[in-house]
């Protein structure tokens, strides 16, 4: 039995790389923030700042890609794809705030830096989940 819904486009491989790459970097930033808060060793907060900045490059490009995709005529715009774009947008906005918090000196980054890193990592995970799930939709469940 065939599905009568319009076929969704699968995620483009480059878009997939951009989107997926942000997750381990945000995760690394979270772990580095945790290491700093536990050890007061400043090198960890430097790592966190760079990992977050690197993640933002990928997440930002993935967001641009997702928005352009979303506006294309042949794209299936529904609640799920809208949610996907919005969660990615939230990831980028919160990631930017995280970057600003990480520009503070030493312990001035805490505890906001660690909390934000956790939220951003969770959002990034949700972004990847939502971004990749069209691969399964429209096909055989």
């Amino acid at each position: 039995m065939t599905d009568s819904r319009p076929a969704r486009r699968v995620i483009h491989p480059v878009h997939a790389v951009l989107l997926a790459s942000s997750l381990p970097l945000f995760l690394g930033a979270l772990l580095s923030d945790w290491a700093y808060s536990a050890s007061y060793e400043v090198q960890w907060i430097n790592f966190a700042a760079w990992l977050n900045a690197g993640a933002m490059v990928f997440a930002g490009l993935a967001l641009v890609w997702a928005i352009i995709d979303f506006l294309r005529a042949d794209f299936a715009r529904d609640r799920r794809s809208a949610l996907s774009v919005l969660v990615l947008l939230a990831t980028v906005v919160l990631g930017f705030i995280t970057a600003l918090v990480h520009s503070k000196d030493a312990w001035a980054t805490m505890p906001e830096g660690l909390i934000l890193s956790l939220l951003v990592a969770l959002l990034a995970f949700a972004s990847v989940w939502l971004g990749f799930s069209p691969l399964r939709a429209g096909g055989v469940r």
Partner: peptide, 16 residues
């Protein structure tokens, strides 16, 4: 989700 975005934006402006 819109409300979340709005509150994030408000918080950002307040912090800045």
């Amino acid at each position: 989700m819109n409300r979340l975005r709005l509150s994030v934006a408000t918080a950002l402006i307040a912090l800045l």
